[in-house]
Design a binder for these strands. Structure first.
Length: 216
DNA sequence: ATATCGATTATCT
DNA sequence: GATAATCGATATG
């Protein structure tokens, strides 16, 4: 099946997709499509790198300290956006997993742009001219959030299963190839767990492309 | 190509 | 007061 070149060919994922262990959601969400579809923004990009955060029993997860004002979306129903602000500079996007009362999420780490590349560049305030590395458009959690105009104020708690919300996740028949795993990036606790999932051949994958775990 | 560092603020100890 | 699920710039091999 050819790559998506229009939003009409993308079908939203249902809530049951997210109502599972974050490891399973992380693996299966690779190759799916993140869509921003509002009055003035029409973006789509393929999900090529994610990390699973396992909830209250995962020391690296924001949910580890329990339900707070910041992370309460993680403890709500599955399929909703958890957006947090980090390092005084950047927003990062997660989708809630599991079920109401049980935290768990998947962090989006890299996207491969399909639609609205010029708009993404404008959101990132970069030019597409010159020798600039094109993958910097959506490679990395902070970069992809900026490309999609995602902020906590606008998007935290948004329903990612509903096209009506303007930010949602769909599938277009793409079959993921070369899924690999590694340890998660940028964390200090539980560093050895292989909870980062990525498409090894995709140029937008951030950081190291080396797997620390067997092929899956 | 890898290393180091400053930015800048919400959140928690 | 310290830390953080990061990025971009600068320095150095």
């Amino acid at each position: 099946m050819p790559p998506s070149n229009n939003l009409a060919s993308i079908r939203p994922l249902d809530r049951a997709f997210f109502a599972r262990n974050p490891r399973r959601v992380a693996r299966e969400i690779l190759g799916k499509v993140l869509v921003r579809d509002t009055d003035n923004l029409h973006l789509a990009a393929r999900i090529v790198e994610v990390e699973a955060y396992l909830g209250q029993n995962d020391p690296a997860a924001h949910a580890a300290a329990g339900n707070t004002a910041r992370n309460s979306v993680l403890f709500g129903p599955p399929g909703y956006a958890y957006v947090y602000f980090i390092y005084g500079n950047h927003y990062c996007l997660n989708v809630s997993c599991e079920r109401e009362g049980k935290a768990g999420s998947v962090l989006f780490r890299a996207l491969d742009p399909l639609l609205g590349i010029a708009e993404m560049a404008a959101s990132r305030r970069v030019s597409l001219e010159g020798p600039r590395d094109f993958t910097k458009l959506t490679s990395g959690p902070g970069r992809l959030a900026e490309a999609f105009g995602i902020t906590r104020a606008r998007d935290n708690g948004r329903d990612l299963t509903s096209p009506d919300s303007g930010l949602w996740i769909g599938e277009d028949g793409f079959l993921s190839r070369g899924i690999r795993t590694s340890s998660r990036i940028g964390i200090r606790k539980a560093v050895d767990r292989p909870l980062r999932y990525f498409l090894a051949q995709n140029p937008f994958v951030s950081g190291g492309r080396k797997s620390t775990s067997p092929r899956i």
